[in-house]
């Protein structure tokens, strides 16, 4: 059994980032205790058909989940799930949650004064193929205000959850769009050190755009990879 390489801690946000107000009461008081990876940490829900059994099948076109066409700018978001050695991670679950193009989530606690669209929910699932590829057709989400400060706005973003091959490789993150003026002002994005911040911004790609139909953005997720040295066991 080979353990996974250490987390790249320098590139990760800290637990406590005071500019992000809710982290003040929700960051753990004590530092975590380092433990060796055991079979518990180097395994995870992986293997043929396991995600369909757990959650159900793919839902990759978010514009076709209802009878009517949703309103907003159609986009393609695609890329690969890789490990840090740039090896593809096949057959793993990529989950997507986002606000609609008015900046509203299909969530009962979202109080933003912006309309829901009965033809758009903003959820999707895609199990990666043999090359680790995923692809969603969705609508570009909008910015929305949040109560972090007197006049604070989240930049447009999409929430992603990636299982990866093991409990140790899990990733939950947010993907942002290039050139967003709200991005450098955002307390959540800025919890990531500046030098690593472009890792959570997607890339506009004319090549994969579908002419006369939808613009395209590319984003690769990079998970922890296998360590070079085997464990004693």
């Amino acid at each position: 059994m080979k353990p996974f390489a250490p987390e790249e801690k320098a590139a990760q946000p800290p637990s406590l980032f005071p500019d992000f107000r809710s982290s003040v009461t929700r960051a753990p008081a004590s530092a975590p205790l380092k433990i060796p990876q055991t079979l518990t940490e180097t395994t995870g829900p992986a293997g043929n058909g396991i995600w369909e059994r757990l959650m159900g099948g793919n839902a990759t076109d978010l514009t076709k989940q209802y009878k009517g066409e949703p309103l907003g700018e159609r986009i393609i978001v695609s890329g690969r799930v890789l490990d840090e050695n740039t090896r593809p991670v096949p057959n793993t679950m990529v989950e997507l949650v986002q606000a609609n193009p008015s900046g509203r989530y299909a969530h009962n606690y979202d109080q933003h004064d912006a309309p829901l669209d009965p033809n758009f929910t903003g959820v999707g699932r895609c199990i990666t193929d043999a090359e680790g590829r995923y692809r969603f057709i969705t609508l570009k989400p909008a910015a929305y205000p949040w109560a972090n400060g007197p006049n604070t706005w989240r930049p447009a973003h999409i929430h992603f959850s990636i299982a990866g091959p093991a409990f140790a490789t899990r990733l939950v993150t947010q993907m942002y769009f290039p050139g967003d003026p709200l991005f450098p002002l955002d307390a959540i994005a800025c919890a990531v050190p500046e030098w690593a911040r472009d890792r959570i911004v997607c890339r506009f790609d004319l090549e994969t755009t579908m002419p006369y139909w939808a613009l395209s953005y590319l984003f690769d997720f990079v998970l922890r990879g296998r360590d070079a040295t085997p464990m004693e066991n």
Partner: peptide, 24 residues
């Protein structure tokens, strides 16, 4: 080598997507 993707918070509005029927 590629740099690991940084984590971000789930935010408060994930239930309609991340909580699946029978998940618990």
């Amino acid at each position: 080598m590629a740099g690991q993707t940084p984590w971000q918070t789930t935010g408060p509005f994930f239930h309609f997507g991340f909580c699946w029927k029978g998940g618990a």
